[in-house]
Design a protein around this nucleic acid. Structure first.
Lengths: 242, 242
DNA sequence: TGATTCCTTGTACGATAGTACAAATATGGT
DNA sequence: ACCATATTTGTACTATCGTACAAGGAATCA
C-alpha cells in the first residue's frame, strides 16, 4: 500500500491516546479488509491509527498476532449472535417464514457487529472475505475451527425445514450464500454501477433483503439429479444450445 | 510468500526453455490466484517458472505489467466465448430452458478456458476473485471497462426472459451469482468439508450444475417490494422472531 | 513526592522487495 | 561461419519490510 507522502501533523511525544490499542485494531481491520494482508505494512497501520510502529509490536508482538487478535475479538460475539438468532428462528411456526428467518439469522450478524465496535460487522466480514481469497495461512485454521460448527448448525436447521432437499445441495447453496455475502461487501460499487444508480450496493439493509430473498429461493429449488449427469469435467456443453 | 530454501537443480546458463514467457505467465497466474498479488514476489514467480528474475523484467517490464498481460490475454477470449454462448442461448425457445441456458452461458467460460491455455479458465477466474478482494488498483479499471458490457448484455438477456422482475433485482442476483462463482473457486475445500465427503467442491462440472440450478431459482423469485421496507440501515431486526 | 509499571518513541538491523543493467549465451537469417 | 537480434543470467542498488530494543514520558499507587 502506498502511504500519503505528507506528514502534516507533527506528533508531540507523550500525548497519549485514550485507547491506542483499539485504534490500532480498528485501523488494521479497515486497511486489511480493503487492501489485503500483505499489501498493508505495520507502518501503514500505525500511521492510520496515529501511533508509532513500535506500539503495534508492543501490543500485538507480530503482524500475524495483530490479525489473530482481530479474529479473536470478533468470532465469539458473531457466532454467539448467530446462535441466538438461529434459536429464535427455529421457533417460527410457518415453514416458509422459518426458512427465511434462519437465512436471515445467518446473514444479519455478518452486517451488524457482534459487539459494540463501530461498523465492526461489515468490516470484519469484509476482512474474512479478503483473507479467504488470499488463502491466509494464519486464519485458515481459525476459520475451520470457529465457523464450521455454526455453519453445520445452520445447514442442519435448513435441512429440517427442507427435508426433501439432500444435505449436499444445501451445503452448496449455503456456500453460494456466503460467497454472495462476501462479494457484496467487497465490491458493492459494482451493484451501483450495473444497476445504473437505481440501487446502492453499500446499503446494508437492502443488500440483506436481496440476499435473503435470493437464497431462500435457491434453497427451495429442486435438487440436482444425483444420478447420471454432472459427472463430466470441463468442458461442459451448453444444454439446449443447438 | 515463503520460497522453498533448497535450490536442487543447478541451472546451466544458456539452456533455453521452449517458451519461457508462457511459463512465467502460467506460474504468475497460479501464484497470484493462490496467495494474492502482494504476497507473491517476482522471485517466487521466476523460481516457479524455472526462470531468472531478470527474465520477468525483460518480458513484462514490471510486476504490474505482468498482471496486466495476464488479463489482456484472457479477457478477450473469455468474453468472446460468453457472447457466443449467450447468442446461442437467446435462440432457445422454451422460456425456462432459455433462462437456464443464459445462466449457463455466463458460468461456463469462467470454468473452461477461453483459449487453449491449460487450466486457464478456473485459474483466471480465481485470479479475478482474489484481485477484486484485494481491491487491486491495476485491474479495477480493466474490470469495469472489459466486463461491464458483457455483464449488461447478460442482465438484459435475463430481463427479457423475466420481464416481470425489475432490472435492479436482476443486477443483485447476478451479482450474487458472480460472488458464488468466485467463492467456489477460491475455497472449494469448504464444500467438501461441510458436506462431509459427499461432495467435491473442486469438481467443476458439479459446481457448474449447482450454481446454475441455484441461480435460476433465485432469478425467478418474487422481486422485493420496492416500497416501504429495506430503507433502514444496520441493525435490522429479525423478521418473525418473537 | 517517589517508586513502579505501563505505554510510547526513535532508531536500527537484517531480510527481502522491485527493478535496472551489463555480460553471457542462444537463435535465426545470410 | 558470421552477424544481428533475442533472450537469459548474475549482480547490484535502493526502498521498504517486520521486528527488536533502549530510552523517555505518562499513569498509578504508596
Amino acid at each position: 500500500m502506498v502511504r500519503k507522502p505528507a506528514k502534516a501533523d507533527v506528533k508531540v511525544a507523550g500525548t497519549r491516546k485514550p485507547n491506542m490499542r483499539e485504534a490500532i485494531l480498528a485501523a488494521a481491520e479497515e486497511l486489511f479488509s480493503t487492501y489485503g494482508f500483505n499489501a498493508v505494512s505495520v507502518r501503514d497501520i500505525a500511521q492510520a491509527a496515529g501511533a508509532n510502529p513500535g506500539s503495534v509490536t508492543y501490543h500485538f508482538k507480530t503482524k500475524d498476532g495483530l490479525l489473530l487478535e482481530i479474529y479473536r475479538r470478533h468470532c465469539g460475539p458473531m457466532n454467539l449472535r448467530r446462535s441466538e438468532l438461529l434459536a429464535a428462528a427455529r421457533r417460527v411456526r410457518d415453514l416458509q417464514d422459518r426458512l427465511e428467518a434462519i437465512v436471515r439469522a445467518y446473514v444479519l450478524p455478518a452486517f451488524t457487529s457482534g459487539s459494540d465496535l463501530a461498523g465492526g460487522g461489515t468490516r470484519f466480514t469484509r476482512l474474512r472475505a479478503v483473507m479467504s481469497a488470499e488463502g491466509n495461512e494464519v486464519v485458515r485454521k481459525i476459520i475451520a475451527q470457529t465457523f464450521d460448527d455454526t455453519s453445520n448448525a445452520f445447514i442442519d436447521a435448513i435441512h429440517e425445514s427442507l427435508p426433501h432437499i439432500p444435505r449436499t445441495d444445501i451445503v452448496w447453496r449455503g456456500h453460494f450464500l456466503l460467497g454472495a455475502l462476501y462479494y457484496t461487501l467487497v465490491t458493492p460499487e459494482r451493484v451501483s454501477r450495473l444497476s445504473r444508480g437505481s440501487a446502492d450496493g453499500s446499503d446494508a439493509g437492502h443488500a440483506i433483503e436481496q440476499i435473503v430473498r435470493a437464497t431462500v429461493a435457491s434453497l427451495q429449488a429442486a435438487p440436482l439429479d444425483q444420478a447420471a449427469p454432472a459427472r463430466r469435467k470441463t468442458p461442459v456443453p451448453v444444454k439446449g444450445q443447438g
